[in-house]
Design a protein around this nucleic acid. Structure first.
Lengths: 208, 208
DNA sequence: ACCTGAACACCGTTCAAGT
DNA sequence: ACCTGAACACCGTTCAAGT
């Protein structure tokens, strides 16, 4: 509780967890999924393979932790986005942010899906990602409502509005990262998509 | 050329390729990505691991072949869709088809991306998937234009329209398959999304 | 000429042995 | 008490040996 540096003669456990996560992220950035092996993470983080399993249940758990952090960061970024430039500008900014995130971790979606299947429903790291995801969704919804209000617009009053928007933004971000539609400038594509999504989910008048 | 059954005393090479692909698809359906090992494919297809490498360059190549076939089938399905029920109905039907396809092979997107990276640009199976994808995109665009015309609508005249629509449909289909938005009926979600996408990319009047 | 499956170089994960 | 890394049971891929 009051211990300032982890409290073990062997080193700070929390710091080692951090280094493990950083090493994993770096390997993922540099060499893609294939480069991410437990042995190379251990080497880079300055630990042993065995010790990694004291902090993470398995390889998937490392992904989950990385994914969770990434979602939390995105949520913070979305929360800080300006609301006074209109819905379309807000959506374009979220798509940018989402593409940046997808660039590093999108490749993990496979892992994520298999985890969701295998579920171990109790698994803590999975619940964490779920909760962070919910928070992200709420943050997007709030930002959107505020941006619309400033423009004198309202969101359509349907349950499917938010899931549709999130799916659409995700699809567009994935397209940008994967460079489908390479013949389009990606900024222009993001801007068009943002305007199109705005047409799809907002109306001019508040309902009476 | 005139040979009716493959022409080898060892059996029909083409038939064995087919059985290999069928075995791979079945394993994927049953046990997910993790169940798909070369050894189990060989066993199920009634060949040996070594022989599989005579028909496919590597494991990824098997995926590519499966993915290509899946895209070709989807293209056929889209081409056969009725045009006279409006744009939104057409889009909803494509989303359905897309979700079905994604259900089996979406998990392969990871593999696909890595292949695109490593590229071996010459790789034949990769080019095949690319070409099939282009054909799919064109087919969607044609169907869409026709459906709009029957309704007295037109697509917006912007290059980004098709990539946006494809990304959006893909995003929605992925959401349905992954069961995000579990609180929504997936048919309702698909219908709302189709209508929203229609608002996003069509106008009422032909341009003058 | 074609086919097989042991062998090779990995992988994720565990746990006896060290400090 | 904590940490290591050899060992285990796999994997994708190759290629000598069989038929």
């Amino acid at each position: 509780m009051g211990e300032s540096s982890g409290g073990s003669i062997y080193g700070d456990a929390e710091a080692r967890r951090r280094r493990t996560l950083d090493a994993a992220a770096a390997l993922l950035d540099e060499g893609g999924y294939a480069a991410l092996t437990i042995r190379s993470v251990a080497k880079r983080a300055g630990t042993s393979t065995g010790l990694i399993y004291q902090y993470f249940a398995d390889k998937q758990d490392i992904f989950m932790a990385l994914l969770d952090e990434s979602i939390v960061e995105s949520t913070r970024a979305v929360a800080a986005l300006p609301r006074d430039r209109g819905v379309a500008a807000l959506i374009a900014a979220i798509i940018d942010e989402s593409a940046r995130r997808w660039g590093r971790l999108g490749r993990m979606s496979q892992v994520w899906r298999d985890a969701e299947r295998a579920a171990d429903a109790g698994r803590e790291s999975l619940r964490a990602v779920h909760d962070s995801g919910d928070r992200y969704d709420e943050t997007v919804f709030e930002a959107l409502t505020e941006a619309a209000a400033k423009e004198g617009r309202v969101l359509l009053d349907e349950t499917a509005v938010l899931p549709f928007l999130l799916s659409g933004m995700q699809g567009v971000a994935a397209s940008i990262v994967n460079d489908w539609a390479a013949y389009l400038d990606s900024d222009e594509f993001a801007r068009f998509s943002a305007a199109a999504l705005t047409r799809a989910i907002t109306r001019t008048e508040p309902s009476p």
